[in-house]
Structures are given as C-alpha cells and as structure tokens.
Nucleic acid binder design. Structure first.
Length: 270
DNA sequence: AAATTCTCCTGAAGGC
DNA sequence: TGCCTTCAGGAGAATT
C-alpha cells in the first residue's frame, strides 16, 4: 500500500525521465477513480512541459506552467514507465505520454485520484489542511505532544491522521510504535512529551529506512520500473501476529484499532 | 470539537 | 470445482 516511502520511491524513479519533458498525449481509459478524472485534463495538459515533480504527504504533484496534476495512489496504485506503444492491461487507467515513453497509472481498486488545478496546488482543498512532513523541520515530538493534549483517541489513530503528520499509513504506524515501545492503543493524551520525542524519531527512522529499501510491497506496489520494494523483509510487527517479537521473543498480537488491523508486542509496547 | 462509522473498489482467501 | 462471504485499506464524508 503506497504510503510516504512508496510515493517518494515513485517520485525519485520517474523524475529523471519526465522532468522538462512535454506531454504529447493524455489517454484516459477509466475516469471513475476516487473522484472522476477531470474532463479538461487532456486539453489542459497536452503540450505542457513538466517543470518539476514534488510530493506533499502521499500526493504527487506534476507541476507545469498551465497548472498541476495531483496524483494519489490510493491503496493499490502504481506509476510505471513503459514504452509509449505498450498495450495497457486491465487496470491501467491513465497514460501520460512523453514522446516515446509513457507514464502509466495502474490502480486495481481505484482508490487513487488524478486531479488538475490551475492554482497553487498547496491551496487545493485536499492539501490545504495537511499537517507537517515527517521528514521536514516542522515535525517534532513537541508538535505531537501539543496537538494530543486531552485527546482520547489511540496514539496510533493520531499518527495516521494527516492533520497530525502526513504520509504515515497503517504499516509504518505499526512499525514506528513498535520501535518507540509505545502501545498503539494508548490514549494520545496519555503519552508523555519525552515519549513523543522517541515516537517522532521512530517515525522518521522507519520512513527513511523504507525509502532506502524502495518501499514495502505486500501486494500491488511496484516502482517506476515495475520492481517491488524490499522493506517488507524488515517489518518487525506488521502482519506478523503469532510470530515472535524480534526484540524479546514474546508472541506478537493482532488487534483492531479504529477499523484498522494493528500489531504489537504486548511486552515491549506499553 | 472530537470521535466514530460509512464509503468507494477489486482480488485474495476461507468456508461449505 | 465453484459459489458465496469476508476482509484489506487511504482518507474524505457523514453521523453521532
């Protein structure tokens, strides 16, 4: 499932091939993603040059002079580079063609999005109220502590809330809380400032390591070349209920928190 | 205001 | 073998 490391991996992979290149065509085979792909996209984007590709949370932004394409990979999306004449497969919904190469969006579950804005993309409704980037300077344990006072939600739910911090989905929330030794179901308002410092460090560590390994591939995620990530080999608790905690040997347990599967070592995490 | 539930979708897995 | 049910999940929308 694409979380921040998978989106960052995708961004780094496609940027050198797409940067400063003009869009020669946009092909849309399936408009019904999370929101309909705008009717105006092809007309607005064709012949425009992609000046830069940036990331905000799990959103990829393809910036051109007339406007910005906002792409979200949902939970099963991937962007791959293929020769322009390559035949699409069943779930290949949108193509951005740059002469001989094609940037192709595949998204079997269609939870992803392709949107267009002529304005500052950071002012777009989907982006305007996002919290800090976890790998940026505004994110800290102090910030998490400040926004969590008197909150009764589980700390895991808090760090998956994009207003608290962007890019942390279910896999990395579980892993960061394991590294920090904090129970995922502990009330956010009952985590101390010093433990939030450890948690913020753990979030950064997990995300940076996952980026280094090209992200996590459980089912659908592949990078721009169609290759999977490797971080799943490094997972300590996610999906490992019944296995032994790598730190203390206690059996890892699974539970549900806010409709999401959660995993913890009941001995290491309090 | 904050917390919880619902919703979109497809493919995999489990039950019988 | 095959049909039916359940589940997974990002995150906005709706509801409590």
């Amino acid at each position: 499932m694409p979380e921040l490391p998978e989106v960052e991996t995708t961004k780094r992979g496609i940027t050198p091939h797409i940067i400063k290149r003009a869009v020669s065509a946009v092909r849309i085979r399936q408009r019904q993603l999370r929101w309909p792909v705008p009717d105006t996209l092809a007309a607005e984007l064709t012949n425009a040059t992609i000046e830069s590709i940036t990331r905000r949370g799990k959103y990829l932004l393809f910036n051109s002079t007339p406007g910005t394409v906002i792409v979200h990979l949902g939970m099963s999306g991937s962007l791959r580079l293929v020769p322009a004449q390559t035949n699409p497969e069943k779930h290949d919904h949108v193509d951005f063609v740059f002469g001989e190469i094609c940037l192709r969006l595949r998204d079997p579950r269609r939870f992803g999005a392709v949107l267009w804005t002529r304005d500052d993309p950071l002012e777009h409704p989907l982006l305007s109220s996002l919290g800090p980037e976890p790998l940026g300077p505004e994110f800290s344990g102090q910030w998490l502590f400040d926004i969590s006072r008197r909150r009764s939600i589980a700390v895991k739910t808090l760090i998956m809330d994009s207003r608290a911090v962007v890019g942390v989905g279910n896999i990395y929330a579980n892993e960061a809380l394991f590294l920090a030794g904090i129970s995922p179901r502990r009330a956010a308002g009952r985590v101390s400032a010093s433990r939030y410092e450890i948690l913020a460090d753990s979030i950064r560590t997990v995300l940076e390591q996952a980026i280094q390994q090209g992200g996590t591939t459980l089912r659908d995620f592949v990078n721009e070349s169609g290759k999977p990530g490797y971080f799943q080999q490094t997972l300590n608790v996610y999906g490992r209920d019944g296995a032994k905690c790598p730190r203390c040997g206690t059996q890892i347990r699974a539970l549900r928190i806010g409709q999401r599967s959660s995993f913890l070592c009941p001995s290491c995490q309090r």
